[in-house]
Design a protein around this nucleic acid. Structure first.
Length: 875
RNA sequence: GCGGAAGUGCCAGAGUCUGGAAAAUGGGAAGGACUCAAAAUCCUUUGGCUUAGUGCCUACGCAGGUUCAAAUCCUGUCUUCCGCACCA
């Protein structure tokens, strides 16, 4: 359908054939690492949502490249993972086959989009060359004590048949398949990300190039809280019960203690007592529920007394011990002290089970009556019924003092808790990196020797659809203990694919490096990533894991920096018919189809001009036509220079300099939509420029414009550039702008002229000239531009006042009525030359009649006339 | 509940930091030029009223406030979207 397709393909082939975008690690230019989150290669191909995301990154890469940076802009594939395995089972192919096919398709689609990747650095996480280093890193983490096998309540997704990390559970559902997640007690491999909780948290404040939103999300996820560990004494024994509280000021108001039902000590305590069977029953009941519904805020609080008592260290009061569903086993110590008067949950529970309520904080102006309270009092107040040292003082302010007191008396100590849990990385699935561990009956779990890497994922396996197919591969499972040499069993769990994606950005720096996961020298040159671009959905997943990896690798001596991504840009989602564009929502607009119909450049500028890249947008079919039309206009300018022969170049010179400046600045801020608006305005201007511009200046400006525009529409710009210059526009230099050439005055003149054009139309209408052929407008010399400026700055009311004082020497009454309007529009401005405006009304037909109009304005202010004698002559 | 972002014309969306012209740019719609005709291109119009004079009124979620002047600053409020969510 369109002429663009031919040369679009031509240029894509040229770029590919001559490796135009290949980058070198030893360039003298300043480096710039521009990275998009690598995709999971699904079989479905790209839709407009993807296209937008990748176009955003490409514009930035091109921009930086033109600006003289050595730009690393690589692409790869997060190729392991469940969808491939599931798709394979469904279609009876092998995940490898499925993945390879998808990758091939992705590459061709990304190329069709015109993206300027250096494909020589392609990284596929499912290739042995890559996952070998996953295993190598696993061993390094293991040796550094950052990997642990432990039994813990874990999230189990039944439909995926594997465990999940906390970060991969959304609203109690599996992030991939949205199946309800169950809680299971299993022994699994964990990466000790919590060791870095504090640094991960503190590092956030230095991530100035990150969106506030993402920083907050990470902060909340890590969830630091300062509190106190307090020791209660279990009655009739010497044992202690340690609780975590952030409100030690309420310690004197504790009326019971609550254990999480699945806390390991609960069963111990009730063993052999009359409570044993009932407690067991309760635990069974609670553990049937998934974590999410159990911890919903509106969930009915349930629990039971377990027949034990403890002593409150500060006042020796004897208090009963309960178990209850609202207490979490894996936060704090899994035991809480309950202060029903000052904590809403404790209050509800106490009311339900008729436990006493003791007030220890009173509001400033009255006293609480425990009998009459309908909810807990959690605000600021004064301490009462507590130790005499603290009674009467303000509760929150007393916390440090109370903590000191507790530490002195050895009742407890300060403690910092995090919500962040260790990262569970085992997956009971096939399509992933085998965990390089061997389980020996004698020696336990022993890491594989580094020299035995890679532990290859066996390719011939049977997919039954249930369980991990690796379990049935005898050759794989049977192994020798690296320590004692006896027959042992190989670990069949594979790694969470987020392990793969936590360091791929290091691999790009030297993707074919053979002697390690990454080459120190090139990592030193390229890292950290200068600009990272991806979806906000990874805020607490990939983005947190990658930060952790970098810090851990730094501490192992492999890296010399602490944060992987200096700047982060999170792009918006594309919606259609009210839903996120996706295969499952059935509202996909395919990239191939749109490109075939309108051409790549149209697709690109449409997607980028729609709205700010960080915003979600609604797809509409009409807009892309406009983009196509716009490109047609640009294309139509290619021979225009030849017909120019004038000498009045100031305007154009100013415009082009301004364009270069503004587009550059807006791209830096990812205001692509604004940058495109500026481009469109410029093109509007270019297509209106008449013969009075010299062809040299026109051509020069046009060339500069092409370079600027090439970041958005590279194909058409390459094509047109060929007319004007040699080489690739993609490798040319971003034009320098000369600030002194940007003439705001001239810019205003333009504004003014277009205003005058409008006015003249009005004049014509008024004097009822039906079909004028020619109109000359002179604006006399004395009317300085400053006047126009002045009027702009004055407020409307003042202008109105002036208008009343306007004296008209006009000959025609009708015309005179127009004067206020003309003034309002700024008419009366002087250009420093005579301007002949030939109104091109109705295309090329010049207006015939000539008018003359004189206006004089006297300003009454201070009785002084304005120092000019304005006159507008419409001749 | 907590936290974040946002509410502008028929539609999408600028402008808000640095207060000053019914408010960019696209789209849609109407009229016109060109054409045998269409597409493309170009021009004009597009808040309301209107005695047609650029005259009046009304506008940037809603309600107030500051100011000669507010879409822009301040206060309150409503709505939408997105994160987190019994974390002791």
């Amino acid at each position: 359908m369109n002429k663009f397709r031919d040369f679009e393909k031509k240029w894509q082939e040229k770029w590919k054939k001559y490796k135009v975008f290949k980058v070198d690690n030893s360039s003298k230019k300043k480096k710039f690492y521009n990275l998009e989150m690598f995709p999971y290669p699904s079989g479905e191909g790209l839709h407009m949502g993807h296209s937008r995301n990748y176009a955003i990154g490409d514009v930035f890469a091109r921009y930086k490249r033109l600006n003289g940076f050595n730009v690393l802009y690589p692409m790869g594939f997060d190729a392991f993972g469940l969808p491939a395995e599931n798709a394979a089972i469904k279609t009876k192919t092998h995940p490898k086959e499925y993945t390879e096919k998808s990758i091939k398709n992705f590459i061709s689609q990304l190329n069709a989009l015109g993206n300027s990747y250096d494909w020589d650095r392609l990284v596929k996480t499912c290739s042995v060359d890559y996952y070998k280093w996953n295993q190598w890193l696993f061993l390094k983490f293991f040796n550094a004590g950052l990997i642990e096998r432990k039994k813990a309540p874990v999230n189990w997704c039944n439909s995926c048949g594997t465990v999940l990390a906390n970060e991969q559970v959304e609203d109690g559902e599996c992030w991939r398949c949205h199946n309800k997640v169950e809680l299971k007690l299993l022994e699994q491999w964990f990466l000790k990300i919590t060791k870095y909780a504090d640094e991960l948290l503190h590092g956030i404040k230095d991530l100035e190039g990150w969106p506030e939103k993402i920083r907050l999300m990470q902060e909340n996820w890590i969830g630091r809280s300062e509190g106190t560990l307090v020791d209660f004494k279990l009655k009739d024994t010497d044992e202690k019960i340690q609780v975590f509280t952030t409100r030690p000021d309420t310690l004197w108001g504790v009326t019971y203690i609550v254990y999480a039902p699945e806390h390991e000590r609960v069963l111990e305590m009730v063993k052999g007592t009359e409570y044993e069977s009932k407690v067991k029953k309760f635990i069974d009941k609670v553990s049937l529920e998934d974590r999410y519904s159990r911890t919903a805020e509106d969930k009915e609080k349930e629990g039971m007394f377990i027949g034990k008592y403890a002593f409150n260290p500060v006042n020796n009061e004897i208090i009963p011990i309960y178990i209850a569903n609202f207490v979490l086993a894996d936060y704090g110590t899994g035991v809480v002290m309950a202060v029903p008067a000052h904590d809403q949950r404790d209050f509800e529970f106490a009311k339900k089970y008729d436990i006493p309520i003791k007030v220890v904080i009173d509001p400033e102006d009255y006293s609480l009556d425990p009998e009459k309270m309908i909810r807990a009092y959690v605000d600021k107040g004064k301490i009462v019924n507590s130790d005499e040292k603290f009674n009467g003082s303000t509760n929150f302010e007393s916390i440090p003092g109370i903590n000191m007191y507790l530490e002195e008396m050895k009742y407890g100590k300060r403690e910092i808790q995090y919500k962040l849990r260790d990262w569970l990385i085992s997956r009971q699935r096939y399509w992933g990196t085998p965990i390089p561990m061997i389980n020996c009956k004698e020696c336990g779990y022993i890491p594989v020797n580094e020299g035995d890497l890679p532990i290859k994922l066996p390719l011939s396996v049977k997919f039954s659809g249930k369980g991990n197919p690796l379990l049935g591969v005898k050759d794989f499972v049977e192994a020798q203990c690296p320590k004692c040499g006896k027959v042992a069993k190989r670990e069949t769990d594979t790694m969470d694919t987020f392990f793969d994606s936590s360091w791929y950005f290091l691999r790009y720096c030297s993707s074919d490096f053979k002697n390690g996961a990454f080459e120190e020298k090139s990592v030193k040159y390229w890292m950290p990533v200068d600009q990272y671009i991806g979806g906000a959905e990874h805020a607490v997943l990939h983005l947190l894991y990658a930060r952790f990896f970098v810090k851990a690798l730094r501490d192992m001596g492999f890296l010399n920096f602490s944060e992987p991504f200096l700047k982060l840009f999170t792009q918006g989602v594309v919606y259609k018919d009210g839903n996120k564009m996706s295969k499952s929502a059935g509202n996909i607009v395919s990239q191939d189809e749109m490109i075939e119909k309108y051409g790549v450049d149209s697709v690109r500028i449409f997607l980028l001009g729609l709205a700010h890249p960080s915003k979600t947008v609604e797809w509409n079919d009409e807009g892309i036509e406009a983009s196509f039309r716009f490109l047609n206009r640009v294309y139509g300018l290619k021979d225009k220079a030849k017909s120019n022969s004038g000498f009045y170049d100031k305007h154009l010179t100013s415009k082009i300099n301004k364009l270069i400046k503004e587009v550059g600045e807006n791209i830096e801020k990812f205001n692509y939509n604004i940058a495109l608006i500026k481009v469109m305005e410029f093109v509007n201007y270019l297509s209106k420029v008449k013969r009075d511009v010299s062809s040299k200046v026109f051509e020069d400006s046009f060339k500069k414009f092409l370079i600027v525009f090439s970041v958005f529409a590279p194909h058409i710009c390459e094509e047109l550039y060929e007319y004007h210059d040699e080489g690739y526009i993609s490798l040319s230099d971003w034009p320098k702008y000369d600030k002194s050439k940007i003439d705001e005055k001239l810019e205003r003149e333009d504004e003014f002229i277009s205003d005058v054009v409008g006015d003249v139309h009005a004049v014509l209408k008024l004097v009822k000239v039906d079909n004028p052929k020619k109109l000359k407008l002179y604006i006399a010399d004395k009317w300085k531009y400053e006047v126009y400026e002045k009027f702009k700055k004055l407020n409307t009311r003042f202008i109105r006042e002036i208008m009343k004082e306007v004296m008209i020497k006009g000959k025609e009454k009708d015309i005179s009525k127009l004067v206020p309007m003309l003034i309002k529009k700024g008419v009366g401005v002087i250009l420093d030359r005579d301007v002949e405006i030939k109104l091109l009304k109705n295309n090329q037909r010049l207006l015939e009649k000539e008018f003359k109009l004189e206006i004089e304005i006297i300003e009454e202010d201070n009785g002084k006339a304005l120092p000019f004698k304005p006159a507008i002559l419409v001749e």
